[in-house]
Amino acid sequence: MTRNDIQERILTIFDEEFEIANPGLDDDLREAHGFDSIDAIELLREIEDMLGFELSQEQKKRAMDNIRTLNQILDYVESLTPETA
């Protein structure tokens, strides 16, 4: 999956699941769109569905601690592989 493919899928998830349409790539998702920790947990589940494998607790914690923007989500998804799960 290319970064563009991932971006398209993530934007669809944001639109359909979180009712956040076309967020800016560097928007602070919490500040600009009210995207909170509950949404982040839901997003991780969606990412697992998208990738077809389960994330480890460590991978999830890394996301919860560090991700604030859509670009960071794309970096994160690109870094994930089942081998590290």
Partner: peptide, 10 residues
């Protein structure tokens, strides 16, 4: 299974 979490509880 892993999806049973904060939202369902709330």
């Amino acid at each position: 299974f892993a999806s049973i979490g904060a939202v369902d509880y709330l």
